[in-house]
């Protein structure tokens, strides 16, 4: 039929134009980069056994001079403002470190923070990373620190799981239980986000304010992350967070070394903040499109009837 032929011509020309200004243009603006590497293959493989007890004493000797471990009742030695002034950035609390950072990365980071975060280009000419490297430490001690941090996180998460269970048991209503569970999961994602990104970035729409003012230390103010899920998209974030240098060569943002699960939680939380109506949108769509589908059929029948009298 002639009208279908006309439609086909329009669809082809519109399709080519769309392809050119959307997929093609975006693929040129954001060249393809290698997929996220959660093995951190550029860092040395690390094979050593450690013990939780040794780790505990190593951490107490070396780390809590700067870091707090809230879940163990260890408060940070300095208030945020003083810490910010001393180091240029507030050292993050380590309660969750064992759960959110990759092991290979952690080992590499403790040995040489600038190298593991791929920010050596920022620390030249006598400038030092605010956290000292512990490359003098034996591999066993470092393995012990990691074992201890893992133990700390596991304890914290197990405790939270028990609390959640108790709270869920306080009601019989299954939808309410579901809601409690969802809220707890979201709170966890928020905590991961605050641990991993919250010392540098604001997230206004989730009422999160960065713990530090890193503009001096970083040389630029990290952007607010509220709308990043839309501004950059999930695909970009997946490779960017895993290794910022891949997209912004020479950037001050460190590789934070999240493991795959933690990074997923961060991105999910960014989506919940920047695209909070996604569920509502996806739920409404079939109704509207279904209604219009029926309109198409009805209007086609009406057209046929009216035109049968004139043609």
């Amino acid at each position: 039929m002639k009208e279908l032929k006309i439609l086909a011509v329009i669809v082809v020309f519109t399709g080519i134009t769309y392809w050119g200004v959307e997929p093609l243009a975006h693929s040129i603006f954001h060249p393809h980069v290698a997929p996220a590497d959660f093995k951190f293959a550029d860092l040395d493989r690390f094979e050593a056994e450690g013990t939780v007890a040794n780790g505990k004493s190593q951490v107490e000797m070396n780390c809590i001079a700067c870091h707090g471990i809230e879940s163990e009742g260890i408060v940070a030695p300095m208030d945020k403002q003083t810490a910010n002034m001393s180091y240029g950035v507030v050292p993050p609390d380590l309660s969750l470190a064992g759960a959110i950072y990759d092991e290979t990365f952690l080992a590499g980071f403790i040995k040489n923070p600038a190298k593991a975060t791929k920010t050596e280009h920022k620390f030249t000419g006598g400038k030092m990373h605010p956290m000292p490297g512990y490359d003098w430490m034996s591999n066993e001690d470092i393995a012990s620190i990691i074992a201890y941090l893992k133990e700390v996180s596991t304890k914290k998460l197990e405790k939270e799981a028990l609390e959640l269970k108790a709270e869920m048991n306080s009601t019989q209503d299954s939808t309410e239980q579901e809601a409690i569970k969802k809220a707890a999961e979201k709170a966890h994602r928020k905590e991961v986000f605050e641990n991993a990104c919250g010392r540098c970035h604001d997230m206004k729409y989730a009422k999160i304010e960065a713990t530090s003012d890193v503009s001096n230390y970083m040389g630029s103010t990290p952007p607010d992350l509220s709308m990043m899920i839309i501004a950059r998209g999930e695909k970009y974030l997946t490779t960017f967070i895993n290794d910022p240098q891949k997209h912004l060569h020479g950037t001050a943002m460190p590789r934070v070394g999240l493991n795959e699960n933690a990074q997923k939680a961060v991105i999910k939380y960014m989506e919940e903040t920047g695209d909070s109506k996604k569920e509502e949108r996806e739920a409404l769509a079939p109704w509207v499109l279904g209604f219009l589908g029926i309109m198409v059929i009805l209007s086609f029948l009406w057209k046929k009837e009216v035109w049968s009298e004139v043609k």
């Binding site: 769509a285 509207v288 499109l289 219009l292 589908g293 309109m295 198409v296 009805l298 209007s299 086609f300 009406w302 057209k303 009837e305 009216v306 035109w307």
Partner: peptide, 17 residues
């Protein structure tokens, strides 16, 4: 208009997609 409304409905389906 009978024809227009039909074409419009098809258009709206595409639009809301």
């Amino acid at each position: 208009m009978a024809k227009d409304v039909f074409v419009l409905s098809v258009f709206l389906l595409f639009f809301f997609y």
